[in-house]
């Protein structure tokens, strides 16, 4: 405990290009970049699957299958296979981001299409019966109704990415994971555990931030006590690694 405290209370560890602050920003940067790419792919695809009901079985199985993939192995394979073809610093970063995106897509996808599924069939029927076009039903009824689960999908994805980005320090990318890996390499338990603590805190803060944003941006009509959160667990929670 003392080792950790000593490491964390040393001001010089916070500053500079490999300090705690810079590493935290880097970590968040990986997450934001990954989520942006993953959401751009997963949300439209999820809406399409939910709206049309096509391709659901394939995606459900793919999403479940992703759970059993060991991320560490995936990461190493990507770096070994893709790295040599990519010049410079990107040789490690690009394959890592690629793997992070691959891991972030399933929870967002699952959240989106199960969110659309959650929409009351009577509301959808009424929307059509009032003469809404297919697009109007999608953006006026299904998307707002799916938002709570889209958010839980993004949240699981974000946590997944933060966790995996930590591991990705083993393939020389930056972020808070560096402290864990570098500390391990030089047998500096203070640095390792200090970094681990920081990663844990970052994850908890992100989790809190997501629930706050979710509360502020989802229609109060959807956040009633009975709004089903039961599905969250099964359909969108992918596994933190």
């Amino acid at each position: 405990m003392n080792l950790v405290w000593t490491w964390l209370s040393e001001p010089s560890h916070y500053l500079g290009s490999d300090g705690i602050l810079a590493r935290s920003w880097q970590h968040l940067g990986y997450m934001v970049l990954t989520l942006l790419i993953a959401a751009t792919v997963a949300i439209p695809l999820g809406l399409w699957i939910g709206h049309t009901g096509r391709g659901r079985i394939v995606v459900v199985n793919a999403v479940n299958g992703m759970r059993s993939l060991p991320t560490l192995g995936l990461l190493f394979i990507a770096v070994l296979l893709m790295g040599p073809r990519i010049p410079g610093d990107l040789a490690f970063l690009a394959p890592s981001i690629f793997v992070l995106v691959v891991l972030a897509v399933p929870p967002i996808l699952a959240g989106t299409y199960s969110g659309v599924d959650e929409v009351d069939p009577a509301a959808r029927d009424a929307a059509r019966g009032m003469g809404m076009t297919s697009w109007q039903v999608l953006f006026g009824v299904e998307l707002p109704g799916a938002l709570p689960l889209i958010f839980s999908g993004l949240r699981s994805a974000a946590l997944q990415v933060v966790a995996t980005a930590t591991i990705a320090a083993t393939v020389s990318i930056g972020g808070l994971g560096r402290f864990l890996i570098d500390g391990l390499a030089v047998r500096d338990y203070g640095q390792m555990a200090g970094g681990a603590l920081l990663v844990g805190v970052l994850a908890l803060l992100l989790d809190g931030a997501f629930s706050l944003v979710q509360r502020l941006s989802v229609s109060p009509g959807l956040s009633a006590p009975e709004a089903s959160s039961r599905n969250n667990q099964d359909s969108t929670a992918t596994i933190t690694t």
Partner: peptide, 18 residues
């Protein structure tokens, strides 16, 4: 229990000895 789940695994492994 949900919060426990948010802690990344590598971090949790490393924090266990503490």
């Amino acid at each position: 229990s949900g919060l426990l789940y948010t802690i990344p695994s590598l971090a949790l492994f490393i924090l266990m000895p503490l």
